[in-house]
Design a protein around this nucleic acid. Sequence first.
DNA 1: TCTGGGGTCCTTTTCCTT
DNA 2: TCTGAAGGAAAAGGACCC
Length: 403
Amino acid sequence: MTLRRIAHLDMDAFYASVELLRYPQLKGLPVVIGGGRRKIDEDLMLGDTSRALHDIPVSEFPLLRDYTGRGVITTATYAARQFGVGSAMGLMKAAKLCPQAVLLPVDFAQYRHYSQRFKSIITDIAPLMENRGVDEVYIDFTEVPGGQREAGRVLARLIQKAIFEDTGLTCSVGVAPNKLLAKMASEFNKPNGISIVMEEDLQPKVWPLACRKINGIGPKADAKLKSHGIETIGQLAARNPAWLVQTFGNKTGAWLHDAAWGRDNRPVVTESEPVSMSRETTFDRDLDAVRDRAELGAVFTRLCEQVAADLQRKGYVGRTIGIKLRYADFQIATRDHSLTSYTADAPAIRRAAGLSLKRAPLQKRLRLLGVRVGSLLRAEDAKLLPTEPETAHDRNALLFPDD
DNA sequence: TCTGGGGTCCTTTTCCTT
DNA sequence: TCTGAAGGAAAAGGACCC
């Protein structure tokens, strides 16, 4: 009998593990990987190619105590977590808790490299794989030879072993009848574990868990559930679906009910097209739209150039150009503007983004500025479309001088 | 000294057209 | 010509995830 068997594979402490492959001398020390400002890169003597990375003495690594500026922790090693520092914490706050921690810059190129490696190992064994970011995937075991043995445990073990032998990295795998349960299962046995969940495990294994463990229930939904006395998934499952729909809306209500009963028929999707691309940056200090006009204009232009370059490199064009502002008080405003034709051209994006920016409130000081291009189309598909000339109005829409 | 960056998806509001 | 309903697209905001 073929049962639907879906696996969720999650790399264990991915960023930190990759860094420790490069810098084994840091093993066991508190290490924090930081929300990257260039200063950390300058501090770390990566430019010195005369010696191997593993020969850099621990004493030469930058420390959290020496860091000044904005940013958050992306990952902290277990040794660092002992001091109470963890993901999403401000670096300045973390420096108080654990000043002696080594601070490494986020190195996405490196993580992407290892990401591609472990994913290609997986698809060699099981071709139906869905990407969920750098360190996570779903895999459809159902039709893979051996995918049914021990309800998926044998194949999960094989994949784990193949990844470890090639990269030295460990991962945790959950195998279940669907993505929802597989995602939960992969957390049951961390690190380097395998967890098998069957339909009949719902009540004993899943219902006692907090609602927050359902992928898709975040802090807001969890607080609302709690306000109605719903703490566990079992308590959620016990609620009348009509009441859930009435309280949370049509879509969310029905979804909450299904999720609590372990029902999910989403397929494993092997490829998908991007919907938008964006670039954003947090300033070293909050900027004033008037007084810091020149600086803002320069950053604005750079963001447009970056997102245009991203589009061109990946072969996409878009027609909805938007901006995002985060004010000093952390309020967010977005504005966007749809063009009549598709573009990946930096000046065109800059003009359209300028139109959007003109419509946003600029009284409060700004903490972050972002530029986004949406309604994407593959560049070669867009060539087939008729084009309309831009209007003079669009052309004259410069808010900030171009440097 | 709080709180990054890059995404997706959903809901609500607004605006335009019929 | 005015008004209102209905529906779709675009815009804005928010929740959530890695």
